[in-house]
Computed example of a mutant assay.
Amino acid sequence: MIDTKILKNITVLYAEDELIIQEGITETLNLFEINVICVKNGQEGLSVFKSSDKKIDLILTDIKMPKLDGIGMIEKIREIDKDIPIIITTAHQETSFLMDSIELNISAYVLKPIDIYKLEASLIKAIEAKVLREELIEKNKRLEIEIQKNEEKQQIIETQSRFAAMGEMINMIAHQWRQPLSSIGTASYNLKYKLLSGKFNLETQEGRVEQANFFTNKLDEIEFYVQNLTTTIDDFRNFFKTDKVFVNSTIENPIKNTLKIIQKDLQSNNIELILDFESQNKINIFENEITHVFINILKNAQDKFLDKEIKNAKIEIKTQDIENGVQIEIYDNGGGIAEDDLDIIFEPYFSTKKEKNGTGIGLYMSKVIVEKNHQGKIFAKNTKEGISFFIILYCMI
């Protein structure tokens, strides 16, 4: 059964030049709790439509009227509002009126004498379409707002991920710089000590040669360590480049870039690294982003080893070609993840190490990079002694 409540409190602009008909229809519309604004012709109706301070929900109009007929009024109104529901009432059944009605997007066509029940049904049908359209517009607006919020949230997460990665990089830079800086300090101290202590007899040719050789060797050492520091900075700087350019490369290249950054850190924590590169396929990738993914996974494994004090810690990285792509498996023997958590480890802000200040965005960003930016796949499976992360990337994206 049609719900007549939809008509309650709507406002109808009613144009009818015959006063008796106008009064009768208006009285009936009032019974439906409809607000009615009455006009005597199309010109008056157009003027009221343009100037009314009330929102007009529907137009009910006769066709044959003085000054400006119903069709003329509708044409002018359609220039202002293409969607407002319009119902025509007329005693005429000429085909030309019906054709005009179709072209002007008329909601319904009611013949005189007016059947109140048919008029009511026409009003409900016309208003239902308007309400549904307005609801759809409102939902679209809310959806756009939610999309914008999600985009802003994504940008925040990406920024957080970038800062978290930067923090990890700074820690690794500090770690990798300790030994070269210590060696530079030792070489500098030896130079100063030898110079001030008078260890070389500069009055003899032999003493001068000995001093020159000593200073040359120490300065060569310092130059070597400075170059080492410079290379480290270049590796990390390249990682943070934001260039979004596809590189056609084997997957071995970003893995090697990752190891330039993290391998010394793994070695210093006695973590064995086993590499098995079998893949030869070239794929289109954002190299820095894929490097970011590998660093996230390897750092998670390292943190887990240290947290659990794992003996004989081991990470294996295997690559192999698959149809139209490559598969990378990164395995560690640091214990698995609870089965209930396997499906949610890639969700934003989920972390198994919150007590250790885990951000819970590293794996989420890895999923975004692999699945959204590269149309690939990333997932994890528990193994007997640990967990394996699988990354699948395709040759053409």
Rank of each mutant, 00 (worst) to 15 (best):
I145P: 05
I106R: 01
I88T: 05
T232I: 03
L273W: 02
I63H: 00
L342P: 06
G335L: 12
R237A: 07
D343K: 14
P348M: 03
P66M: 11
S188W: 01
I261G: 04
M1P: 08
K314F: 03
V326C: 09
G360D: 11
T89R: 00
N41F: 02
T186S: 12
K353I: 11
I317F: 12
N257S: 06
E27K: 13
I173Y: 02
M1F: 05
V209M: 06
C395R: 04
T11N: 12
T383K: 13
L342M: 10
N284S: 13
P180M: 07
E221K: 05
D321A: 13
V12P: 00
Q22R: 14
K353R: 13
G336N: 09
I21E: 03
S351Q: 15
F305R: 12
T28F: 13
Q179H: 10
E75S: 03
K192N: 10
G207D: 09
A165S: 09
F200Q: 11
I137P: 04
M65K: 01
K264D: 15
N300D: 06
L104V: 01
D343P: 02
K40E: 11
N312Q: 06
E27N: 08
Y189K: 15
I37K: 02
M365S: 04
Q211C: 15
N270Q: 14
D3V: 04
L275T: 07
D276V: 04
G325Y: 08
N105P: 00
D307Q: 15
V370H: 05
Q320C: 09
T11I: 02
S268H: 04
V368Q: 09
V131I: 12
K356D: 05
D332P: 06
F224K: 12
V110F: 00
S107R: 01
K40P: 02
T359K: 15
I251V: 15
I271A: 11
S52K: 09
S52G: 05
Y193S: 11
N140T: 15
S268E: 13
N312A: 06
E151D: 10
A313L: 02
E168Q: 11
E278R: 13
S249F: 09
I156V: 12
I297A: 11
T90A: 08
A129M: 00
E385K: 13
K299Y: 08
P66V: 15
K76M: 05
N300C: 14
M99E: 13
T291G: 04
I25T: 12
Q176A: 12
T383F: 11
G362E: 07
L111C: 04
D81N: 14
I59W: 00
K353P: 00
I10M: 06
H92W: 03
I255S: 10
K256T: 09
K125W: 00
D69V: 04
N382Y: 08
K282D: 08
I251F: 07
